[in-house]
Deep mutational scan, measured.
Amino acid sequence: RPLSCPNHEGKTMEFYCEACETAMCGECRAGEHREHGTVLLRDV
């Protein structure tokens, strides 16, 4: 079952931030994590 983002209601966490070692949604990735290296969560 997909994980919901606690910061963006209705968004699914699909990415993993390698710098912060945390899962995130597309909005997180485009925002606070935009300078960080990210991979698809399913690839982690």
Rank of each mutant, 00 (worst) to 15 (best):
L3E: 14
F15E: 04
Y16D: 01
G37T: 15
V44I: 09
H33T: 04
A23V: 05
G10L: 07
C17A: 01
Y16T: 05
C17H: 00
Y16E: 04
R34D: 10
V39Q: 10
C28P: 02
L40C: 14
N7L: 06
A23R: 11
R42E: 13
E21P: 00
E14P: 06
G37W: 05
G31D: 08
R1C: 07
Y16C: 03
R42H: 14
G10H: 09
C17G: 01
R34L: 09
L40S: 10
R42L: 05
E9C: 11
V44E: 10
R29K: 06
N7Q: 13
C5F: 02
K11Y: 10
H8V: 03
M13Q: 13
A30Q: 15
V39S: 11
H8T: 02
E21K: 15
R1M: 00
T38S: 14
C17D: 07
L41G: 07
C25L: 01
D43Q: 00
E9D: 14
E32Q: 09
C20Q: 02
S4T: 15
N7I: 13
E14T: 04
L41V: 06
A23C: 10
Y16P: 00
V44C: 10
C25I: 01
E27A: 10
C20I: 00
E21T: 10
E18V: 10
A23T: 11
M13W: 05
C25D: 02
C28W: 01
F15K: 03
R34Y: 08
K11I: 13
T22L: 08
C20V: 02
A30T: 11
G26Q: 10
E18I: 06
K11M: 10
H8F: 01
V44H: 12
C25F: 02
S4K: 11
H33Y: 00
Y16A: 03
V44G: 12
A30V: 11
M24W: 01
E9A: 05
G37Y: 15
L41W: 08
D43V: 01
L40P: 14
E27Q: 05
E18N: 12
E14I: 04
H33D: 05
D43C: 01
H36V: 02
E14R: 03
E14W: 02
V44T: 11
G26I: 10
C5V: 00
C20S: 01
F15M: 03
H36R: 02
H36S: 03
H33E: 04
L3G: 14
E35F: 03
E32R: 09
C5M: 02
E14Q: 09
L41F: 05
M24H: 08
T12E: 13
A19D: 11
P6D: 12
M13A: 09
M24I: 15
E32T: 15
G26T: 05
H8D: 03
E21G: 06
L3V: 14
D43L: 00
E18R: 12
E9Y: 05
G31L: 07
G31R: 09
F15R: 01
E35K: 14
M13I: 08
C25K: 01
H36A: 03
H33F: 03
L3D: 15
C5L: 00
L40I: 08
P2A: 12
M24L: 13
L40H: 07
E35L: 06
P2K: 15
C25R: 02
V39M: 15
H36Y: 00
E21H: 14
E27G: 08
K11R: 09
G26S: 12
R1A: 11
G31Y: 05
T38M: 04
L41C: 14
R29Q: 13
T12Y: 15
G10F: 15
E14D: 10
D43M: 04
C5Y: 00
L40N: 03
E27M: 07
C25E: 03
T22S: 10
E18F: 05
H33R: 02
E32W: 04
M24D: 01
K11H: 03
A23I: 02
E18L: 05
R42S: 13
E35V: 07
C20Y: 00
C20K: 02
S4C: 01
E14F: 04
C17Q: 01
L40R: 12
H36C: 11
L3Y: 08
L3K: 08
E9I: 12
F15L: 06
T38N: 14
G37Q: 13
E14V: 07
L40A: 12
S4L: 05
C5R: 00
A19G: 12
A23D: 13
T38H: 05
N7P: 02
K11T: 07
H36P: 02
T12V: 03
Y16N: 05
C5P: 00
E9Q: 14
H33I: 01
L40T: 11
E27F: 15
M13R: 11
K11P: 04
A19N: 12
D43S: 09
P2S: 15
R42N: 15
R29M: 10
A23Q: 15
C20G: 02
R42W: 05
D43G: 07
T22W: 01
G37N: 14
C28Y: 00
L41M: 15
E27K: 07
H36G: 04
P6F: 09
H8Y: 02
R29S: 14
G10E: 11
M13K: 06
T38A: 13
C17T: 03
E18Q: 09
C25A: 02
S4N: 13
D43N: 11
R34V: 11
E35C: 06
E32V: 11
G37E: 07
G26M: 07
V39P: 13
L40E: 13
R34M: 10
C28L: 01
R29N: 12
M13G: 07
A30C: 07
G10M: 07
S4R: 04
H33C: 06
E18M: 08
P2Y: 15
A19V: 10
R29C: 07
E32G: 04
G10W: 06
R42D: 12
R42Y: 09
V44A: 11
K11A: 09
Y16K: 05
G31M: 12
T22G: 04
E14L: 07
E35H: 09
P6Q: 12
A19W: 07
M13E: 08
C5G: 00
H8E: 03
E32L: 11
